[in-house]
Design a protein around this nucleic acid. Structure first.
Lengths: 113, 113
DNA sequence: CAAACATACAACCAAACGGTTGTACGTTGT
DNA sequence: ACAACGTACAACCGTTTGGTTGTATGTTTG
C-alpha cells in the first residue's frame, strides 16, 4: 500500500479503462505488432493510437522494441498478472469480513465486541 | 466482447483507477459503512466522497441500502471477481500466443506459413 | 539523392474528471 | 415543533483525457 504502488495501480487501472487500449493489449499479448500495424486497425488517427500505446507503455503494460524503422510492441503478461493480484488482494479483504463474522457466531453472544 | 460488456469494463476499470475509490472498496468489502462514516475517513468534502461512492455504485462495485436516515454501503465481491476474470481473459490471449509458438516449433520448418 | 514510410511530438479543442460550496429534503431526537 | 443529522444534487472551476492536425526526424528503397 505504499504511495508508489498506489501510483502504479492508478496507472494500471486508468490504462485499462479505455476499450481501444484494452483491444490493443489483446493484440500485443497475442503477438508483436508495429505501431502503424496497430493504428491501421482503428478508425482514428495514427497519432491517437500512438498516444494510447504511450499510455500503456508508461503504465508498464507493454514494451516497444526498435527494429529498423518500425517500433515492435509486445504486451507484458506479468504486468497483467500484477493487476489481477491487486484485485485478489481486494477479495482477501472481503474474506477477512467473512472470517470475522464466523468469529462472532463462534463467540459467546453475551460478550461480543 | 459485446458493446455492453465493454461499457461494463470501462466503468469497472475507471471506477478502480482512483486511490480514494479503491480505499473505499477495501472498507466496504470489509464491512458495511454509512456514507458519512466513509466521508469522515478522508480529507475532502462529504460531497466529494459521495460522488466517489456514486461512481462505484454505478459501476456495480458496491450497493447502498437505506437504514433510517443512513445509507449503508456494501462492497460487491462478485463484481470484483468479474473484473479479475476480464484480466484472466487477457492472460488467456497471451497463452494462445505461446501455444501458437509451440505449434511453429513442432511443425516441419519447411512448410511454415 | 529523393521519395515514401514509420515514428515522435507539439498545439489545439471539446468533454469528462475530481474537487469545491451551496441548497434542499427526509429522518431522528429533544 | 424544531434543531441536528445524513443524504442528494446542482453549479462552478481548474486539470486531465481523448481526439485532431501539422511538423520534424530517422529509415528504407528506387
Amino acid at each position: 500500500m505504499t504511495d508508489r504502488s498506489e501510483d502504479q495501480a492508478d496507472a494500471f487501472f486508468h490504462a485499462l479503462a479505455d476499450r481501444t487500449r484494452r483491444d490493443i493489449m489483446r493484440r500485443v499479448l497475442a503477438g508483436q505488432h508495429s505501431v502503424s500495424a496497430l493504428a491501421a486497425k482503428y478508425d482514428m488517427s495514427f497519432a491517437a493510437v500512438q498516444k494510447h500505446v504511450a499510455v500503456l507503455e508508461k503504465a508498464g503494460l507493454l514494451t516497444k522494441l526498435r527494429s529498423g524503422r518500425e517500433q515492435l510492441v509486445s504486451g507484458d503478461v506479468a504486468a497483467v498478472r500484477s493487476v489481477a493480484s491487486m484485485l485478489a488482494e481486494l477479495e482477501q479483504v472481503w474474506r477477512g469480513r467473512i472470517a470475522r463474522i464466523d468469529d462472532l457466531i463462534a463467540s459467546d453472544p453475551d460478550q461480543e465486541d
